[in-house]
């Protein structure tokens, strides 16, 4: 095997990583834990909602455990796209990488939504 190392399916742990699933708290879809890119998935690809299980400010597991709603797409300096989630109960923000099979319509809606309700007239930018 050259280059990328493929996980062996024989051990118990890798099989668990490859086959574990979770149920989306919002739409009830059963989602595989492995993303198509090979990483781990932590939000539902259909409605993009997540669960507050990791405490970002302190580190470690979170006591909140409630639903996290997607609020925006962030493009980092390196070109990576992150999905920003906000917890609906405690308001904490997390960022997660976007996987390939995420719902493109919801991503588009989140990207367009600020421009649909601008706080200043956007007509002046046509002159620039």
């Amino acid at each position: 095997m050259s280059g990328k190392e493929y996980p062996r399916v024989s051990t118990h742990k890798t099989r668990q990583v490859l086959t574990d699933t979770f149920t989306c708290v919002r739409c009830g879809l059963t989602v595989t834990g492995a993303a198509p890119g090979g990483g781990r998935r932590n939000h539902c690809p259909s409605c993009l909602h997540s669960l507050h299980v990791l405490d970002r400010a302190e580190g470690g597991p979170s006591e909140c455990g409630s639903r996290m709603a997607p609020i925006s797409i962030a493009v980092l300096r390196g070109g990576d796209w992150m999905l920003i989630h906000r917890c609906t109960r405690c308001g904490e923000l997390t960022s997660n990488p976007i996987s390939g099979d995420d719902n493109q319509l919801i991503l588009m809606r989140m990207a367009v939504r600020p421009l649909a309700e601008p706080p200043f007239p956007l007509e002046t930018f046509g002159d620039l």
């Binding site: 797409i73 493009v75 796209w81 719902n103 493109q104 319509l105 991503l107 588009m108 990207a111 367009v112 600020p114 421009l115 601008p118 956007l122 930018f125």
Partner: peptide
């Protein structure tokens, strides 16, 4: 507006949204 337009200026999102229709 530059920050808000950053995801829209990339082709990946536009093409993906059109393909999923």
């Amino acid at each position: 507006v530059r920050i808000a337009m950053r995801p829209l200026s990339d082709d990946r999102l536009r093409v993906g949204a059109l393909l999923s229709l």
